[in-house]
Amino acid sequence: MRNILLFIVKYGPFFLFLFFQITCFWLITSYNEKQKSIFINSSNLFSGYINEQSNKVSSFFSLDEENEALRKENAKLLQEILNIRVERSSNQVDTFADKYSIIPSKICAKSLDLRNNHLTLCKGEKDGIKKGMGVIGPNGVLGLVNQTSQNYSSVLSILHSQSRISVSLANQNHHGYLIWDTGDPQYATLHAIRKYAQLNIGDTIVTSGYSTIFPKGIAVGSIADFKIEPGGEMFLTKIKLFEDFNVANEAYVINSIFKTEVDSLTIENE
């Protein structure tokens, strides 16, 4: 107690000074228009800055949820686009509402540098993913589901020696198939385009829609280089893939409603 008193006596003038300065500050900021407005403005700037920073931090922690919401929204939009496209190309009023539905998912794991690459999605049978469904990313085709478990599914990526996707030129009716034999995750090879097709560097390659896996017209890549197969009738075309597998993070699994129906027909025919 005595020490506290001594302290106050010793630094009394300073506390008095502080007290008067605070009083003055209060007087200045409440009764002088100019200083008041400066004070309010700068305190707004300050508090605004603090708010912004704290928002940044909190939004960082909610990024996952936000991404999930955006993914769902994207899937919904994508589904609508695909179905509209189908309706337009079939040129008839469809009594069935949707031909394709989309299941959004995050990519949990992926490989790029192997001879046979796979992706793992964070969703599985529980969310409706089945073997044989097509998988696309925001920019283009990713691959095919080849194994599923309760919560995860494995995707045979385009970058797999066994993958074979039916594609066509976006502006012409020439079909071929895309395989990955370049060893470079950015490029694949397009086979079986007839040599009388008009190829230009930069032309877009899209899915053909002949298989039930992918709807017609999903972008795959663009022509980077082409030459005629030695002694053959076909072009050998190098394709630059649109989807960058290095950064791919989002996947949309395409569920074709009529797939089982079409598949059973095919099997019967065989």
Binding site: P13, F14, F17, F20, Q21, T23, C24, F25, W26, L27, I28, Y31, N32, Q35
Partner: peptide, 22 residues
């Protein structure tokens, strides 16, 4: 301050001046 119509400004300055006088 009452005559300058600027409550607190002159008071603040003169308080500070009195404080540093020592």
């Amino acid at each position: 301050d009452f005559f300058f119509d600027s409550p607190g400004i002159h008071a603040s300055a003169l308080t500070a001046t009195a404080f540093v006088r020592k």
